[in-house]
């Protein structure tokens, strides 16, 4: 083996080692919480003396947890639907069409992302109170949207920037109606962007704590419950639910990637 090959091999080895290290640092806390959920004891102590899936069974059986999951799921689903619809048209206005207020709009739409979420949550709470709305997970939909719609708009806008407007013109010229252009050309081509926007919307809503804290009223979402239990009344159901949530999110991403891959393969065929 000549020296150059040796050097290349060493470089590859170092890259692999570094990548492994970074992954370990990132995922170690997640792994720890998974381990904590599998302990027998009431408290989280290393080394774990006895293993059991008892807490998983109890978490799955818990009516309270079931309600939390339903609330979080309903919230995230509603946010996803509205955010994708608003983000799609927002992205077209952002990146596709030239109109007089566009530059201002491009700046203003980003502002909520830079606004500290706890302050935004509090401001929304005061505002909801002022207009006399009753707080529940439904008001949290509005709160989440304030922060999530700009993110989804940006995610879809990136795809819109790469979209040749001549394609829409060509479709229109070839006899398609406005609706047909949208259905046959615009939507299918922007589909990957819409899909990632939806994924972002769901996950950002699912994991959101600061906005939910102020705006869910008597309802509670998963992150809120986790926080409350960690402050007072720790139970191993906390790491269990945390781990479940992580697994669910990872599967959602995995399924999304798989769906995208299958679609690509079908198109390539």
């Amino acid at each position: 083996m000549n020296p150059q090959e040796q050097r290349l091999r060493r470089a590859r080895l170092m890259t692999a080692a570094w990548t492994g290290f970074v992954l370990l640092v990132i995922y170690l806390p997640v792994l720890c919480s998974a381990l904590a959920s599998l302990g027998k004891g009431r408290y989280f102590l290393f080394p774990i003396r006895g293993w059991s899936v008892d807490w998983w069974a109890r978490t799955l059986d818990s009516i309270e947890i079931g309600m939390l999951l339903r609330t979080s799921l309903a919230l995230a689903a509603a946010v996803t639907v509205v955010a994708v619809a608003a983000g799609f048209f927002g992205a077209l206005a952002f990146a596709r069409y030239d109109w007089s207020g566009r530059r201002l709009y491009q700046k203003i739409v980003l502002l909520p992302i830079f606004f500290p979420q706890p302050v935004l949550g509090l401001a929304l709470l005061l505002w909801f109170n002022a207009v006399g709305m009753e707080m529940s997970w439904r008001t949290a939909i509005v709160a989440h949207l304030v922060w999530i719609v700009p993110v989804v708009t940006l995610v879809i806008a990136i795809k819109v920037y790469g979209f040749d407007p001549a394609l829409e013109e060509a479709a229109f010229d070839l006899g398609a109606s406005r609706l047909q252009v949208l259905r046959e050309v615009t939507l299918p081509i922007l589909w990957p962007g819409i899909w990632s926007g939806a994924l972002f919307a769901f996950l950002l809503s699912w994991g959101n704590f600061p906005l939910s804290l102020y705006t869910t009223g008597a309802d509670s979402t998963v992150p809120e419950w986790l926080y409350a239990k960690m402050i007072a009344g720790y139970t191993p159901m906390v790491p269990t639910l945390g781990t479940m949530s992580t697994i669910a999110a990872a599967s959602a991403l995995g399924i999304g990637a798989l769906a995208a891959m299958l679609m690509k393969r079908r198109r390539a065929a």
Partner: peptide
């Protein structure tokens, strides 16, 4: 354009990539 008896071949061709 969709009601006209004309059809344009674009400079970029504008073929539908999907």
């Amino acid at each position: 354009p969709n009601k006209r008896p004309t059809c344009l071949v674009f400079q970029s061709l504008a073929l539908f990539p999907h």
